[in-house]
Design a protein around this nucleic acid. Structure first.
Lengths: 169, 169
DNA sequence: ACTGAAAAAAAGGCTCC
DNA sequence: GGAGCCTTTTTTTCAGT
């Protein structure tokens, strides 16, 4: 664990075109073998493997996960929740952020600019489950205004980010 | 490949408690070995492996992907876009859905109930990139109203859905 | 010096029973 | 659930540009 070699900085280089291709491929399908990925990006196994290792070490690739069909596990309802919190202290904000983050139904949670203070994406089984969630949400902290918008149909939902061709790393 | 055994229906059983545990684990970390997953859910390798295979065959597990750090690839800006489309034909709707789905910056795209007709989550590099995206969006199809809300801070963002303890499959 | 090829060692997936 | 084959990963060494 004593890492004398690493010069602390320069842990990560800028991503070149091949790195970006690798990221695009792995965001679509992380079950591919290194050889197969190498083929697709025009690299043999070893250099491809080394690049993937580096991308993981640098934290560009954060994790590898399985994606689950929302409907197949009975979570039919996606809800976008807009929250106006009103003025609050730093401490309140921390409490609020921690409490909401702890709710497993909250898939995404952002602090926003503009009229809405916070935005949530919530996944639950149905309206009954959402009602329970909602009551839990508003009982945890005092909120000025909460607007729930319900999804009728999921038209597109991906985890793959559009890796930009060449810009800031 | 000739699968005489399978009775066509009954391709998937209802998910039991162990299946749900497996899904919870794999949604967090799909790089674990089957033996390790087995340990965590109280199963030895073989039965655990068979369950995972079945979950994949049944489409409960849809894919395995690598997740990438949004900031590390220079995509610093998340935007929630609310769209009011006004009244439109079936054909228009299809055109609209296809056009918007084709935009790689659109990570999520839902048809909504209520005041907002469509909701997008968009990921871009910065305001300049968003402006370009926005112009492309509104030039593609005529929209009654488009509201963009910008994220200042990502507080929580996960891909793992909260597998319910025991309900509908 | 960095990249790619090749091959050996280790580990894990997958198939039997 | 356990034993074992066998593919794939991972490491090392070596050659080319």
């Amino acid at each position: 664990m004593t890492d004398i070699e690493t010069p602390i900085a320069e842990n990560h280089r800028r991503l070149d075109a091949i790195d970006r291709k690798i990221l695009t491929v792995l965001q679509q399908d992380a079950s591919l073998s290194v050889a197969e990925i190498g083929d697709r990006v025009g690299l043999s196994s070893t250099p491809c493997w080394k690049r993937i290792q580096r991308l993981e070490a640098d934290g560009v690739i954060t994790r590898r996960v399985a994606l689950v069909d929302q409907d197949k596990i009975g979570l039919g309802l996606s809800v976008f929740v807009s929250i106006e919190s009103g003025d609050h202290s730093e401490a309140w904000l921390k409490t609020f952020a921690d409490a909401v983050s702890a709710l497993p139904e909250v898939i995404e949670f952002y602090r926003m600019a503009g009229d809405v203070d916070y935005m949530l994406r919530v996944v639950v089984a149905d309206m009954r489950a959402y009602d329970i969630f909602y009551k839990r949400l508003i009982s945890t902290v005092a909120l000025k205004n909460v607007t729930s918008r319900f999804a009728m149909e999921k038209i597109k939902s991906v985890t793959a980010l559009p890796v930009p061709p060449l810009s800031a790393a």
